[in-house]
Nucleic acid binder design. Structure first.
Lengths: 113, 113
DNA sequence: CACTTATATACTTATATGAGTATATAAGTA
DNA sequence: TACTTATATACTCATATAAGTATATAAGTG
């Protein structure tokens, strides 16, 4: 059951929740996630590291960028994220993130600030 | 969204998760929950207090006992608990709790140890 | 009204967690 | 091979959290 409670601990942090909901929709690289969420790179990277450690995401380098993708083995986890997405209108921040992620590429250029 | 992340923080503690899944099945008093889970009374009470504070459970006195019941306003929350229950075979502790809660009354007598 | 019982809370302590800043690493490019 | 860029990690500090023990409270009972 630790795996389940650990999963909920992941979701209990807003930044991580935003990341997971983003990745639920699209494979993204770190600087895209920074751009979309407005959070700093170390912050995003650190949370991604946690997600990676417990196997919820996987990373893959594509040229200069490292792209992250969901890696949800358990059906339960997928179902829970799905519940949130189904009620996305209740969560404006998540909804706005998803909108922005449709044009994620534009955050690639502006990666360096 | 804080409400959502707070909900997940609730679920990230094993004791609270056990309590919520129990209450999902049956209205219970504190000492029944202690008996079923094997956890101490202050521990259970403290976690119930948190659940009460954020409005996830409601309490009601019946004679000597104070019974707790789920108070899930949001459909999302109900849906998430449902996902867990649907996969209860993956979580032996929760499954055993539910079994025990079918005979919860017997923990009323033995409340005082 | 004293006593018991069920539950709640206070206090202490140990541990975990997250943020920010600075720095390291590793791959790509000139 | 030096330089840049993208990402990861280390370090520090402030805050949050959970557990255990002791104690308070509030209702019921003799």
């Amino acid at each position: 059951m630790n795996k389940l409670t650990d999963f909920f601990k992941v979701l209990s942090d807003e930044t991580r929740l935003r990341i997971l909901i983003l990745l639920y929709h699209k494979k993204l690289c770190v600087c895209e996630m920074c751009g979309i969420t407005g959070e700093s790179q170390p912050k995003i990277s650190k949370h991604l590291a946690k997600l990676r450690d417990i196997g919820l995401v996987k990373d893959e380098r594509q040229e200069q960028f490292i792209f992250y993708d969901l890696n949800l083995n358990e059906q339960v986890y997928k179902g829970i994220l799905e519940k949130i997405v189904d009620n996305i209108n209740d969560y404006p921040v998540l909804k706005s993130d998803i909108e922005k992620c449709k044009h994620a590429e534009k955050y690639l250029e502006s990666c360096r600030r």
